[in-house]
């Protein structure tokens, strides 16, 4: 078995609309991969196909070397969209039910998982009384219950406050250290950035990027740079930039502007030649969100 997860031409059509269109990727055992995309891009549909919940219109998914749906899914833990539970059962009983369904877990495992997500105190309460954050943490405990070798996580930090987000991130890091393969989708890009080494980006059902995080950032930089400029005459600076066909954004006495990579080196000298006295010029480094947006915008641009 070479890959923990593999998608081959995975496609899901609803009538004439392709929710996921010819998506292929492979994830090695132990990798932690971020799955990026705006809402409706096809992340959840892809994860559902890999979890055997929906049938692809074309292509196939493999988990741990076996085509899904199949028995290899018994080694998979999932959190897909909103965490769901039987509201009339307690948190502990929901985990017991899942464990029974799976065929049982080792003694003490349920308590260990409740402790792992810091839910021991509330474990006896019915889930209907849980907050969003508690549900999210309980869902993670359930996903880890049978020591899965693969985790498929869809927006695991959705609806959480910053503390909850940090806790989920810490939990996932701990899981990753145990060698579990993780495919985690999110549109909170900052969270992915702190967790993953590799990014899959999907837009309108098509995979638009597959590679290391650094390559995504570099590729976005290659598309455009963002400069922040200060000049003695801000109005003149703005005017010259507009005349050059750029779209300056002014904030106080600073002007931010995005410049194509090929024009970036000449920007400041061009401004000086136009008679603008630049007192400060710095190039902003991208975070993942900027990089991703640029990537998507570039792909959406007509050729």
């Amino acid at each position: 078995m070479d890959h923990a997860i593999a998608a081959t031409s995975l496609t899901k059509r609803y009538g004439r609309v392709a929710a996921v269109d010819d998506v292929s990727f492979e994830i090695a055992p132990g990798e932690i991969v971020g799955f990026l995309g705006p809402n409706g891009a096809g992340k959840t549909t892809t994860l559902r196909m890999l979890a055997g919940l929906i049938r692809p219109s074309r292509g196939e998914g493999h988990v741990l070397g076996q085509r899904v749906p199949g028995n290899s899914l018994r080694d998979v833990g999932t959190m897909i969209e909103e965490p769901s539970f039987y509201p009339y059962l307690s948190g502990r009983d929901n985990l017991r039910h899942a464990a029974l369904l799976h065929g049982g877990v080792e003694p003490g495992r349920i308590d260990a998982m409740l402790a792992f997500v810091k839910m021991e105190a509330a474990a006896g309460k019915r889930v209907r009384a849980y907050s969003q954050g508690m549900r999210q943490r309980l869902a993670l405990a359930r996903a880890l219950l049978w020591r899965p070798r693969v985790l498929l996580l869809d927006e695991p930090a959705n609806g959480l406050d910053p503390v909850g987000i940090a806790e989920i991130r810490e939990n996932l890091r701990a899981v990753a250290r145990e060698g579990v393969t993780v495919l985690v989708s999110s549109h909170i890009l900052a969270e992915i950035e702190k967790l993953v080494d590799r990014i899959l980006a999907i837009e309108k059902g098509r995979l638009v990027f597959d590679g290391p995080l650094e390559r995504l950032l570099a590729r976005a930089e290659a598309l455009a740079y963002r400069y922040v400029l200060r000049a003695t005459d801000v109005e003149a600076l703005e005017r010259v930039l507009r005349e050059a066909g750029l779209a300056p954004e002014r904030a106080g006495d600073l002007v931010a502007v995005e410049v194509d990579a090929e024009r970036a080196d000449a920007l400041v000298s061009d401004l000086v030649q136009a008679g603008v006295r630049i007192t400060e010029a710095r190039r902003e480094s991208d975070d993942l969100e900027d990089a991703y947006l640029r990537l998507v915008q570039a792909d959406a641009r007509p050729a």
């Binding site: 559902r48 749906p69 018994r74 769901s84 899942a98 799976h102």
Partner: peptide, 9 residues
Amino acid sequence: KTVLVAQPQ
């Protein structure tokens, strides 16, 4: 989505 992951068959 929970039941069919815990018991995929």
